[in-house]
Simulated assay, not measured.
Amino acid sequence: MKYLVMIQGTQADYEAQGGKGSADAPAWSEQDIQAMYAHMSAINDDLAETGEIVDGNGLAEPAKARHVELGADGKPVITDGPYGETKEVLAGYWVLDCANVERVTEIAERILQCPGPEGTKQFPVVIRPILDGGGDV
């Protein structure tokens, strides 16, 4: 069964990882960044070894996002980010092919153990089954 595993963040989190902390997100040091990368790389390596990883990536900061929606007149309205009304955004994801939801939950628990500076907000890891071609999970 395939699952989408998502991690969330905010624009402030991206800025903090760049060294610009705020009340909502403490600044990350180079050691903090390297520890995070080492943690995530170890997870990715293990998933590659077990054959469970299909795809996975971190995403660019919300400030580099583009929002496309239909306006009242039915024409597209395009807005470049960040968006003041948006709190959390998708920061990264994995597409995993795991035997069951218990296994993917174990992986999500490991993702939550990612190191970071004290005071960093911990967002939940979201797991969503990917529908097969027939709409069944």
Rank of each mutant, 00 (worst) to 15 (best):
D80A: 06
Y93M: 04
Q17K: 10
A72T: 07
D32E: 10
K87N: 13
E109Y: 12
V68Y: 08
A35H: 11
I78E: 05
P124S: 09
C114A: 12
N100Q: 04
P62A: 03
A99R: 06
L131D: 08
R103L: 02
M6G: 01
P117Y: 07
E69G: 13
P115G: 09
F123H: 08
Y3I: 00
G81F: 04
E49L: 15
G18L: 03
D97W: 07
E106M: 07
G81N: 04
D80Q: 04
G133S: 13
A38C: 09
D73R: 10
G84S: 12
G135L: 05
T50E: 11
Q34T: 14
P76D: 06
G58Y: 08
H39G: 08
E30A: 11
I127T: 04
G19A: 03
V5Y: 00
N44L: 08
S29N: 12
Q31R: 14
P82S: 05
K121F: 07
V104E: 00
G134D: 11
S29A: 09
Q31E: 15
A25R: 05
G51S: 06
E85D: 12
T105K: 02
T86M: 13
A99Y: 02
Y83G: 08
P129L: 01
E118S: 15
K121M: 11
G135V: 02
D13G: 02
L90I: 09
T120H: 06
P26M: 04
I111K: 02
G134M: 14
G9S: 03
A35D: 13
S29Y: 08
Q17F: 09
H67I: 14
R128T: 01
A99C: 07
A91E: 03
G81H: 04
G51V: 08
P26W: 01
A27D: 06
D13L: 01
Q8P: 05
G21T: 06
K20V: 12
